Simulated scan of single mutants.
Amino acid sequence: MVKTNFAQKRNGRSLENNDGERGLKDTMDDAAIAGITMMKGFVRSFLSADSKCIQRHICDASLNAARESRELGSVISQIGG
């Protein structure tokens, strides 16, 4: 739910200021989305007993974090994964 709220806020306003740069709030929103996505993957992996499922949950979370949160999401997914 929190992830959806961040994404809606991000999509509802311009991501760039007049100089073509993204603001600190947008960057923090991306970091929060990536963190929430990775946390969801970690929780799913802890609830799984099969090692292949654990790896799959972490890989899926990393992929989604990188896809949904731009450059910062890619960095967070590499660190978290």
Rank of each mutant, 00 (worst) to 15 (best):
V2N: 12
V2Y: 11
K3N: 05
K3E: 09
T4F: 12
T4D: 15
N5K: 09
N5I: 13
F6I: 07
F6Y: 09
Q8P: 01
K9F: 12
N11Y: 03
G12F: 01
L15I: 10
L15T: 08
L15W: 01
E16I: 11
E16H: 05
N18M: 11
D19H: 14
D19I: 14
D19M: 13
G20F: 06
G20L: 03
G20W: 02
R22P: 07
R22Y: 03
L24D: 15
L24T: 15
K25W: 12
K25D: 15
D29A: 14
D29M: 15
A31P: 08
A31T: 09
A32F: 12
I33K: 01
I33R: 02
A34N: 01
G35W: 00
G35N: 04
I36V: 14
I36A: 06
I36R: 03
M38T: 08
M39D: 12
K40Y: 09
K40H: 11
K40D: 14
F42C: 13
F42I: 14
F42L: 14
S45V: 08
S45I: 10
F46H: 09
L47K: 13
A49I: 13
A49F: 11
A49D: 12
D50G: 03
D50L: 06
D50W: 04
S51W: 06
C53I: 15
I54H: 05
R56E: 11
H57K: 08
H57V: 04
I58P: 00
I58W: 00
C59V: 10
C59N: 09
C59T: 14
D60M: 06
A61G: 05
L63W: 04
L63Q: 08
N64F: 10
N64A: 12
N64C: 08
N64V: 10
A65Y: 01
A65S: 03
A65Q: 00
R67Y: 11
S69N: 00
S69R: 00
E71L: 11
L72I: 15
S74C: 13
S74P: 01
S74G: 14
S74A: 13
V75D: 01
V75H: 04
I76P: 01
I76Q: 01
Q78G: 13
Q78V: 15
I79H: 02
I79A: 09
I79M: 04
G80C: 12
G80D: 10
G80Y: 10
G81K: 03
